[in-house]
Nucleic acid binder design. Structure first.
Ligand code: MG
Length: 833
DNA sequence: CAGTAC
DNA sequence: GTACTG
């Protein structure tokens, strides 16, 4: 209901500029979405983070002493794990060349666990090309047609025997610092020949990365010796979903059991495989996977097809889920419900299974397409990649290597490749089959003993191989079978790439077995923009309804009452359903005359349709009209600022009907200004407050930085009488956010005011967030998430693995944000979704 | 965790 | 959806 109004003032504080927002909550009725601002960008600090090493903090920011350094081009940077003695150690490996390409340097650095995050961010930013419109260069992220980054230093490079001055950009600076660090610990090179095991899969899905398969052979004997020395076996953690550590059990009863941290499931699997093999006395040839970022040059499009790891591949064998009667079971173990896809799109009309649970029980996220008794294997990589991989004979088998951490990751990636077009606001959440595929994999990985589906695959492949030339690679085949028996059909460690020919190519699963069903086609993306359909943040501006009157207003008014009640109760799903129904009705061109007509509208389900029926028949709705003590109290109390569903319901259950007695500071203030806070704020008053805040802001101590600005500003505003009460953010604790109460001189009404301080480079994102609407924001953030980004009011990053994100992507305007995300720009007035 | 902001 | 305060 309220129209958010923001304004901003920029100011220069020391070297860094900060932007200040002040938002007024409330607002006059029916103003269009509005904002006023006048930012001027003078400087931006790019990148952030630091590496702590050997007691010295190296800030990955413009550094002072760099003029003596050469400028290096980074050829590759690799994050991998190595077994150093008995410890898995994370290694960052650089390969660099000087700009003159005189010499190339290969260096390694150990990365302490707590800095893996930093290093990962840094690598992403160095390596990744973001979208067509935004590329990432050594100089930093740049949107098409403009050069964003600024040089942070200069240096000299040798050119034709002459010194030539050149700029150092932030990202290069990071590389330089990295190289410096590496040089400081060159003693690490003695480990260079030590056995490699499994790579961290953090970078698995980088589009510009290649997964270097089978590079080098692990020195088996070292590992063998280690395991034999320990004399034991590897035990899975009791927490089967998330393997957090492994136990090395000694056969010698006197020795202790060591428990070691363990983060990568793939490592666990590899280790257990080796252990098992050792027990059987068979020869083990273990290769490691390595992910190498091959080029640090701007990612050209032709790069994308080549050296491309077929990103997301999953095996899902649904027979696991199916019971005898052919009805699949959901993750609860209950028979799943058969539904039909209602949403317009490539999958309309298709049947699918999902969890049968209904409100208030929580529905699990089980999903499968509605072809009972069929084994479904989904492995749809990007088409170009499929082609390539098939040709090369590197089938899906290679990449079904899976661990729990990874599964979610690839899930995201699948969504990037084929973002499913479901409206997040749709009743039926039609999840892509890939999604369940990953769940299937997860399931599989956790059920160690019985793998019925694996049997199937095994036989399939045996047959397949028989059909192929049997004489070929007799030995290799044997080994392969051996591996499968060990539960290794889902992972393939090929022999050394240089020394042997690849094994007989596995056939694409669709052709391999008659029991496998077709891969559901990806949503049709041929129509440009099609896949963005259903996201509120991409709604056609002309379709956004702002009408205050429409043919069904009598219905929506009543439904709003119910929506409000649901909100007060904290029942977000009902609230959501009512909101959807109301939006649908607002969009409906004619007056709804019958129950059936209402039911046919998308966004209106059975229950709401019945209610609409009642409204049509009687002109009112009993449920909404009925007033009792409870609903009255609910309505009144939840309007108190600081009291939400829980508090209000607690009050009511305690018998509070009138004025609550037990109040905290916030609810006290909320109650004190109860009436005023319901009132909207006239635009002129907003402007007047804006002017006042601005005036005070410019009188502020210019040496203050960051959040101290807020403290100072709030202090001054309080002193001059504008701020009368504080709600949050007024403590000593550093905060970028203040929420309080203000009143202009000579005015009667008290107003809620928010003040936030942001570093200037966050301006576009802060502006985007504040402009809203809430629904618009959520929609955009959802889109970002589904496309491998993370969007907040502070930064936008790439996100491939939970917890590991790229450096923030530089944006200098709201348009940039849309571009980065591959969305069409929407003007503020078109964001009223 | 509850509440708020968009 | 994300981030912040209490
Ligand atoms: Mg409230």
């Amino acid at each position: 209901m309220s129209v958010g109004i923001i304004f901003c003032i920029t100011m220069i504080v020391s070297l860094v500029k900060f932007t200040l927002f002040a938002g007024l909550v409330g607002g006059q009725a029916f103003y269009p979405r509005y904002r006023s601002y006048s930012p001027t960008v003078h400087c931006c600090v790019l990148g952030r983070g630091s590496v702590y090493l050997l007691g010295t903090m190296y800030i990955l920011q413009p550094a002072a002493a760099c003029s003596a350094l050469m400028v290096y081009n980074l050829i590759s940077v690799t994050l991998e794990e190595k077994m150093i003695e008995t410890n898995m150690t994370k290694i960052l490996r650089f390969e660099t060349k000087t700009q003159a390409e005189m010499d190339s340097i290969k260096l390694e650095i150990t990365v302490p666990d707590q800095f893996v995050q930093n290093v990962s961010r840094w690598m992403y930013t160095l390596a990744e090309g973001y979208t067509e419109d935004v590329r990432n260069t050594l100089e930093g992220a740049a949107t098409k047609g403009e050069v964003v980054p600024q040089a942070v230093a200069t240096t000299y490079v040798a050119e034709n025997d002459r010194k030539k001055e050149c700029d150092i950009f932030p990202k290069q600076m990071q590389v330089l610092i990295g190289i410096l660090l590496v040089r400081k610990i060159t003693q690490l090179t003695e480990y260079a020949a030590s056995p490699h095991l499994v790579v961290i899969f953090h970078l698995y899905n980088l589009s510009s990365t290649s997964l270097g398969m089978n590079i080098g052979t692990v020195q088996r004997r070292v590992l063998q010796q280690q395991i034999l020395n320990k004399g034991g076996r590897v035990v899975e953690s009791p927490n089967d979903r998330n393997i957090t550590h492994y136990l090395v059990e000694s056969s010698d009863a006197s020795s202790t059991i060591s428990q070691q941290p363990f983060q990568n499931t793939s490592q666990f699997v590899l280790l257990s495989y080796v252990t098992e093999s050792l027990k059987k006395g068979s020869l083990v040839d273990v290769q490691h996977h390595r992910i190498t970022i091959q080029s640090m040059q701007p990612v050209a499009d032709q790069n994308r097809g080549t050296n491309h790891h077929p990103s997301a591949k999953k095996i899902k064998v649904e027979s696991l889920h199916h019971s005898e009667d052919g009805i699949p079971k959901c993750n609860h173990g209950l028979p799943a419900a058969l539904r039909q896809v209602k949403k317009d799109g490539p999958n309309t009309g298709k049947m699918f299974y999902c969890c049968q649970q209904q409100y208030p029980m929580k529905r699990c996220n089980y999903f499968s397409w509605g072809q009972p008794n069929e084994t479904v294997i989904t492995s749809p990589p990007a088409p170009s990649v499929v082609k390539k991989e098939t040709k090369e004979g590197k089938g899906w088998l290679h990449y079904s290597f899976s661990d729990e951490e990874d599964a979610e990751d690839r899930l995201d990636d699948v969504k990037i490749e084929y973002p499913h077009t479901d409206d997040p606001t749709n009743n039926i959440t039609c999840r892509s089959p890939q999604l369940s595929g990953s769940e299937g994999v997860q399931e599989e990985m956790s059920t160690k003993n019985k793998r019925p589906w694996q049997e199937t695959l095994q036989s399939t492949y045996r047959e397949e191989e028989r059909e192929k030339k049997e004489e070929r690679e007799e030995k290799g085949k044997k080994e392969k079978k051996e591996k499968r028996k060990l539960g290794w059909s889902e992972m393939s460690y090929d022999t050394d790439d240089s020394s042997q020919t690849p094994p007989s190519p596995p056939i694409a699963p669709t052709q391999a077995d008659s029991t496998t069903s077709q891969i559901p086609p990806p949503p049709d993306r041929s129509a440009k923009g099609m896949w963005r359909k259903g996201f509120a943040c991409q709604q056609n501006p002309s379709q956004i309804v702002q009408k205050e009157s429409h043919p069904n207003k009598h219905i929506t008014d009543i439904l709003s009452v119910l929506q409000q009640k649901s909100t007060s109760l904290g029942d977000k799903w009902r609230e959501y359903a009512y909101r959807k129904a109301i939006t649908a009705l607002k969009n409906y061109p004619q007056k709804v005359e019958t129950l059936e007509e209402a039911r046919a509208i998308r966004g209106i389900g059975e229950k709401i349709a019945v209610k609409i029926g009642e409204i049509i028949d009687t002109g009112e709705l009993g449920q909404a009209k009925h007033r009792d003590e409870f609903s009255d109290a609910l309505e009144v109390l939840s309007k108190i600022w600081g009291a939400g569903p829980t508090t209000v319901q607690r009050w009511i259950s305690q018998g509070v009907r009138g004025r609550p007695q037990l109040l905290n500071h916030q609810t006290k203030i909320g109650l004190k200004h109860y009436e005023d806070f319901q009132k909207r704020i006239p635009r002129e008053e907003v402007s007047a407050i804006e002017a006042k805040v601005q005036q005070v802001l410019y009188s502020i101590d210019k040496t203050l930085k960051g959040c101290a600005i807020l403290v100072g500003l709030v202090g001054l505003l309080r002193k001059c009488g504008l701020l009368t009460d504080d709600l949050a953010g007024a403590n000593d604790r550093e905060s970028n956010k203040y929420m309080g109460v203000c009143r202009l001189e000579g005015k009667e009404t008290y107003r809620r005011i928010d003040i936030r301080v942001y570093p200037l480079h966050e301006w576009p994102l802060a502006l985007l967030y504040f402009t809203g609407s809430d629904h618009f924001n959520r929609s955009m953030r959802l889109w970002a998430k589904k496309n491998g980004f993370h969007l907040s009011e502070h930064e936008i990053t790439r996100r491939h693995v939970k917890g590991l994100e790229s450096d923030p992507i530089m944006v200098t305007s709201e348009e940039d944000v849309f571009k980065v995300l591959g969305l069409e720009y929407r003007a503020p007035e078109d964001r009223d979704v």
